[in-house]
Nucleic acid binder design. Structure first.
Length: 765
DNA sequence: CAGCGGTTCATTTTT
DNA sequence: TGAACCGCTG
């Protein structure tokens, strides 16, 4: 008897191989979290590994929380001693613990995108670089890339050729780093990069961690970037008991520096590594999985995997071609309503996925009109709201006096009559005195030519901050938050405004203070530092509250999640794939592949039903633009999908594309659901196409289900076959075997179609 | 200094 | 469409 008995053979191998490096290539829905948690349970309960000798790293806090929960049910109390966390959280924690050894100030602040941008603005201004030459956005992006390539400012400057822009950028990088250090802050990239560097130059500290973490587990390995890879390599170097779980087909963060080589080259980096493939999918119906497989097969750059399932074929996918984005929203709402008539489904079983956050607006309007309860994952995060960031800025400044960016944020919030001129003046004065802006407030009498009115306002602010600093020493976290809200005059300002928005803001702050109370109760060490750290590293996915609501989110946010009912909207060229990808693909065709993987991720989120949609006309940038259906739609075998037209018939350009997936409304109206494929002796693929009786009505009674196909005989290249929809055609190409077999057939009017044998009703012609 | 109105610009994706 | 930024006025 072993804990691992409940796993399938591949899963068991992945979980039981605990000595040496293991790479688990886990397809979507193949039970990778199960493997990870059972592996941990196996280590602790059956191999007597001490919990604190295990480190498990995930991508999101949510994944970490889930893993901890599931491990807890398997091993009980001991789970609390296992190190489970996100890369960023773990790095932040180690950096703080080892701050002294690393020569860092342990009170460092973690800067998010907003703070980073504010700092960059300041840098660009100080270097007199006009916005047209280099915007803060672009500068941040390029510097982030440099950091993730482990390039220090000095190295970057060296590499910068005589190219003017590069040299300029090097200057910006240097100034940015200097200022970051001056305000005692680290950005997201730094958390990783800094720890990797410090461990390299402090071998004794590294040794300590290497000895402690005898067993390492990494989730979502395909999304690790260079510094993350290096960190893992450092930590695993001693024991080499490293288990990385990932799926190259689900790598969707390369734009942010995730390096697919980390997964593709695993065997090279760890020659003794064992590779385990998890290819049985436990999540989706046969048709959904077939669609996913068909789409991802268009990618060249992959290790190659073929997912299979024992689940029933399920319902066909449905593609709604809508005339406008508004109609698309209505289609989704109507369809959802229909589904909810079925008592087995509730609102929380459904999710709408889209490529960009901006697309949520049209959907939201329609949902509000219909009174459907929904939550948005990833819009504006709670901790990104202005009022929350304001209050947090007070807290940050109390912890880190050097944090000028936070000071600037709050020195005149709420209004204290301290304007831009004064702030810029204070900054210059502080710089001249080599002090932080907060410290400079203490020596205002040395500021020449300061008029008494301004001085007065500044002194009032100084008094406030000193008062709060005292409060910090005596009060607990929640009371401190309350005091700041009150003493700063923030509450007063909101009440004076007396608007619904102000009311909402006040509520949000009440929520923040409630969070603080909760934090005090839950944590062993509820320090202000740790509270801020937790909040800085919180992502929008982590905030999704359970409840009876429909979920709206980007495809990126959906990674790792699953829903019985999934809508993927906005399947249009230049939206999904994005215009950037389309553009880039003109010179580098592989550029489209990340978008395709994203589509693959979306499809594989669905357990039972999947709806796809696009709008021929859509509001973007405030105007109506016309669009074309996404190329990805052509990659889904027609047999898997029913097409329906929503709204007025619309023209679309047929272009040079040989097989537009769209039929006219007359045709599509008559398209009934496809019959399940004929039973075949699949070679190595175990599809079971026993349609549940509830679907019986969907099956065309005229099809002979027992007809046996001798594929070798009549499906050879050059043969003529009869398709129930397109008539007679000639087979021109064939790929795959058994149920995965696809044929390319030339039908009348030079119509070239790719069909899946498993779903097409083909007969010898 | 604050508040206003006008203009411009942007939409990937996020730890 | 909207947020974000700029410049003018009181």
């Amino acid at each position: 008897m072993s804990i691992l008995d409940g796993l399938n053979p591949a899963q068991r191998q992945a979980a039981a191989t605990i000595d040496g490096p293991v790479l688990v290539l886990a397809g979507a829905g193949s039970g990778k979290t199960r493997v990870l948690t059972y592996r941990i349970a196996h280590l602790v309960r059956e191999k007597n590994v001490a919990p604190w000798n295990i480190l498990a790293v995930t991508f999101t806090n949510k994944a970490a929380g889930e893993m901890r929960e599931r491990v807890e049910t398997l091993v009980g109390d001991q789970s609390s001693d296992i190190h489970i966390g996100t890369f960023h959280a773990i790095c932040a924690r180690f950096l703080r613990i080892e701050a002294t050894a690393f020569g860092l100030d342990p009170h460092f602040t973690i800067y998010d995108e907003d703070d980073r941008r504010a700092l960059m603005r300041r840098v660009l201004k100080s270097l007199d670089i006009p916005e047209e030459d280099l915007g803060p956005r672009s500068a941040i992006g390029q510097i982030s890339r440099a950091k993730n390539a482990m390039l220090t400012p000095a190295l970057f400057a060296q590499q910068a050729n005589d190219n003017n822009i590069q040299r300029r950028l090097a200057e910006v990088y240097i100034a940015y780093e200097t200022q970051l250090r001056q305000v005692n802050a680290l950005d997201f990239d730094d958390l990783l990069v800094e720890l990797v560097r410090q461990l390299k130059s402090n071998p004794d500290v590294l040794r300590k961690y290497q000895e402690r973490f005898q067993y390492l587990l990494v989730d979502e390995y395909q999304d690790t970037n260079r510094p993350q890879y290096l960190l893992i390599q450092q930590l695993a170097a001693l024991h080499r008991n490293l288990c990385c779980v990932g799926d190259d087909d689900q790598s969707i963060y390369q734009f942010r520096g995730a390096d697919i080589r980390n997964i593709l080259d695993f065997e090279r980096d760890y020659p003794e590594a064992q590779t385990v493939r998890l290819e049985q999918n436990y999540r989706s119906t046969g048709r959904i999985l077939a669609a996913a497989n068909a789409v991802i097969q268009n990618n060249q750059d992959r290790k190659g995997k073929q997912l299979w399932t024992q689940e029933a074929a399920g319902e066909p996918l449905l593609l709604a071609q809508c005339d406008t984005d508004r109609r698309e929203a209505r289609f989704i709402v109507t369809t959802l309503r229909q589904q909810l008539m079925d008592p087995q489904y509730s609102l929380s079983d459904a999710a709408i996925l889209y490529r960009t956050n901006a697309q949520s607006r049209a959907l939201e309007e329609e949902l509000q009109r219909s009174g459907i309860n929904y939550i948005i994952v990833g819009g504006i995060r709670f901790y990104e709201r202005k009022e929350i960031k304001d209050l947090l800025a007070y807290l940050r400044l109390l912890v880190n006096h050097a944090d000028d960016i936070s000071l600037r944020r709050i020195i005149n919030t709420p209004k204290r009559g301290i304007g831009d001129t004064t702030i810029t003046g204070l900054q210059a004065f502080a710089q001249h005195q080599s002090l932080s802006m907060l410290a400079a407030l203490e020596i205002l009498d040395q500021w020449p030519g300061l008029n008494s009115r301004t001085r007065n306002s500044l002194e009032k602010f100084r008094t406030l901050m000193n008062q709060l600093a005292q409060a910090k020493e005596t009060l607990d976290l929640a009371n401190l938050g309350e005091t700041i809200f009150e003493a700063s005059g923030y509450r007063q300002q909101l009440q004076d405004e007396a608007s619904p928005e102000a009311e909402a803001r006040e509520q949000n702050i009440a929520q923040l203070i409630a969070d603080m109370t909760e934090f005090c109760h839950n944590e062993d060490e509820p320090t202000l530092e740790f509270f801020l750290e937790e909040k800085s590293l919180m992502s929008s996915v982590d905030e999704a509250e359970p409840g009876d609501a429909l979920t709206l989110m980007t495809l990126h946010s959906a990674k790792g999640l699953e829903f019985p009912l999934i809508f993927i909207s906005g399947l249009e060229e230049n939206l999904f794939p994005t215009s950037r990808a389309v553009e880039e693909a003109r010179t580098r065709p592989a550029a489209i592949e990340e978008e395709r993987r994203l589509f693959y991720v979306g499809i594989t989120r669905a357990r039972q039903r999947l709806w796809l949609s696009y709008a021929s006309r859509r509001f973007a940038y405030g105007t109506l633009i016309t669009t074309e259906p996404s190329r990805f739609l052509n990659e889904i075998p027609a047999e898997l999908m029913v097409v329906r037209e929503e709204g007025n018939k619309t023209e679309y350009s047929r272009g040079a594309r040989s097989s537009p997936p769209i039929k006219t409304s007359q045709q599509s109206a008559r398209i009934t659901r496809q019959a399940p494929p004929k039973r075949q002796q699949a070679k190595g693929i175990h599809y079971e196409y026993d349609a549940p009786s509830s679907q019986a009505h969907a099956i065309d009674p005229h099809i002979d289900h027992n007809q046996v196909i001798d594929e070798e005989d009549f499906l050879a290249i050059g043969r003529w076959v009869l398709h129930n929809r397109w008539g007679k055609g000639k087979i021109v190409a064939r790929e795959g075997q058994g149920n995965a077999m696809k044929l390319t057939i030339l039908f009348a009017h030079n119509q070239l179609k790719r069909v899946m044998v498993a779903y097409a009703q083909l007969e010898p012609a």
